[in-house]
Simulated assay, not measured.
Amino acid sequence: MAIDRRAMMGVTAAAAMLPGTALSAEGTEMYGMLGRMKAAPGKREELLALLLESSADMPGCLSYIVAKDATDPDAIWITEAWDSKEHHDASLKLPQVQAAIAKARPLIAGFDSRAETQPVGGIGLGRVPAPKG
Rank of each mutant, 00 (worst) to 15 (best):
1 M>A: 14
1 M>P: 11
5 R>L: 14
6 R>S: 15
8 M>K: 07
8 M>A: 15
9 M>A: 15
10 G>S: 09
11 V>G: 12
12 T>R: 12
12 T>V: 13
15 A>R: 09
17 M>L: 14
17 M>Q: 14
17 M>C: 13
17 M>H: 11
20 G>Q: 01
21 T>W: 03
23 L>C: 12
24 S>C: 09
26 E>C: 10
26 E>G: 15
28 T>I: 00
29 E>V: 08
30 M>R: 15
31 Y>C: 11
32 G>F: 02
33 M>H: 11
33 M>T: 05
34 L>E: 03
37 M>V: 15
38 K>G: 05
39 A>H: 00
39 A>N: 01
39 A>Y: 00
40 A>M: 04
40 A>R: 03
42 G>Q: 00
42 G>S: 03
42 G>N: 03
43 K>L: 02
44 R>P: 06
45 E>D: 14
46 E>W: 08
46 E>R: 12
46 E>F: 11
47 L>N: 07
48 L>A: 06
50 L>V: 10
50 L>R: 05
50 L>E: 03
51 L>H: 08
51 L>M: 13
51 L>K: 04
53 E>S: 15
53 E>L: 12
55 S>H: 02
56 A>P: 00
57 D>F: 05
59 P>E: 07
60 G>M: 01
61 C>A: 15
63 S>I: 01
64 Y>V: 13
65 I>K: 13
66 V>P: 10
67 A>L: 12
68 K>S: 11
68 K>Y: 08
69 D>V: 06
69 D>I: 05
70 A>P: 03
71 T>D: 13
71 T>G: 13
72 D>K: 05
74 D>T: 05
74 D>E: 10
75 A>D: 07
81 A>C: 11
82 W>E: 09
83 D>S: 14
83 D>L: 07
84 S>Y: 03
84 S>Q: 01
86 E>Y: 07
89 D>I: 04
91 S>L: 06
93 K>S: 15
93 K>F: 11
96 Q>C: 07
97 V>K: 06
97 V>Q: 08
99 A>H: 00
99 A>M: 01
102 A>L: 01
103 K>Q: 12
105 R>G: 11
110 G>M: 00
111 F>C: 05
111 F>S: 10
111 F>L: 08
113 S>D: 05
113 S>K: 01
114 R>H: 10
115 A>H: 03
115 A>R: 05
115 A>D: 00
115 A>K: 03
116 E>D: 11
117 T>A: 15
118 Q>I: 07
120 V>Y: 09
124 G>K: 01
124 G>I: 09
125 L>M: 10
127 R>W: 06
127 R>K: 14
128 V>N: 12
129 P>C: 12
129 P>H: 09
132 K>V: 14
133 G>S: 07
